[in-house]
């Protein structure tokens, strides 16, 4: 399984010279499964460049949306494969008692916010509510579960062979809870992230910033690290950077979070801040074990 970060920013795009290294595009992660199937996790503005990197040939793509806040869907109408008749796109997302996934997304892909309507997209697009139980896409087993954020919001776990990716970009598991003392089954998102190979997790706020944003649906650094430690994630990427955080500030946050991670008993090589275009390859465990012995 190959993972590439196409957008690491939260809330709103933050382009400019001060964010050029970590990137200014909003949430999008490309995943190439071991059988070649292609997934996009969220469709923030980062999906525009992911789309440009796709070959112009008949293909089937799956877009897994965690929720429908604008920073997670804004790139949909600029996703080049959506304008190719030979492309089939399946969009997965959370159910809501209010309206179907298609109707809720159509509020954005419609006038006056968009020059095109969903029905006008040349591709073959369909919308599916994520099931409660695990399902398969290509060589992967996918699991979705509701997590603590504002409005219906999912986290995803993708198991491909023996490797797994957990993606919870918008998450406030410490809201009203002490992550260090709470039982595992009472921690939002725990089952998705347990012993995962790679955890991509919300780390929007510094600990100093968090008190002014309690209940906004995002984590402070220390919450993200506690969650990673409790779940036993092998490698953790902090994601959904605050749009006000410059590269220099994120560099400083990386140093501070590494220090805190080591204090918690973590291996310093297993934590990082996600940067746009970062790539990760998750080999099967058997292959990793063999590689480790070379």
């Amino acid at each position: 399984m190959k993972v590439k970060l196409w957008g690491t920013r939260g809330s709103i795009p933050a382009p400019g010279p001060e964010t050029i290294r970590y990137g200014g595009n909003t949430s999008c992660v490309g995943v190439t499964l071991s059988d070649g199937s292609m997934l996009a996790l969220d469709a923030g503005t980062g999906i525009r460049c992911l789309g440009l990197a796709q070959p112009d040939e008949p293909t089937r793509l799956h877009i897994l949306l965690t929720h429908l806040h604008l920073d997670h869907i804004q790139g949909l109408v600029f996703f080049a494969p959506a304008f190719r008749p030979q492309t089939e796109i399946v969009i997965w997302g959370p159910a809501s008692p209010e309206a179907s996934l298609r109707d809720r997304i159509a509020r954005y892909i419609s006038a006056p916010l968009s020059p095109v309507e969903v029905r006008e997209l040349p591709c073959d697009v369909s919308f599916r509510h994520c099931p409660e139980s695990e399902w398969e896409i290509g060589s992967a087993r996918i699991r979705a579960a509701s997590v603590t954020h504002r409005g219906p919001t999912l986290g995803y776990r993708i198991d491909d062979g023996d490797s797994s990716l957990t993606y919870i970009p918008d998450h406030e598991p410490a809201l009203g809870a002490d992550l260090e003392s709470l039982e595992e089954d009472w921690i939002s998102g725990f089952a998705l992230a347990r012993d995962t190979s790679l955890l991509i997790h919300d780390g929007q706020y510094t600990d100093a910033e968090y008190p002014c944003h309690v209940g906004w649906g995002h984590s402070a650094t220390s919450h993200a690290l506690s969650f990673a430690r409790r779940t036993g994630a092998e490698r953790t990427v902090l994601f959904h950077h605050d749009p006000l955080h410059s590269d220099d500030q994120l560099d400083a946050l990386a140093v501070e979070s590494q220090r805190e991670w080591v204090e918690l008993g973590g291996d310093p090589g297993t934590l990082e801040l996600g940067a746009e275009r970062d790539e990760f390859e998750l080999p099967a465990r058997a292959a990793k074990a063999a590689a480790a012995t070379v």
Binding site: A145, T148, A191
Partner: peptide, 10 residues
């Protein structure tokens, strides 16, 4: 481990 439903956690 069985994860509690989010609504119970909240």
């Amino acid at each position: 481990m069985t994860q509690r439903p989010l609504e119970l956690i909240l």
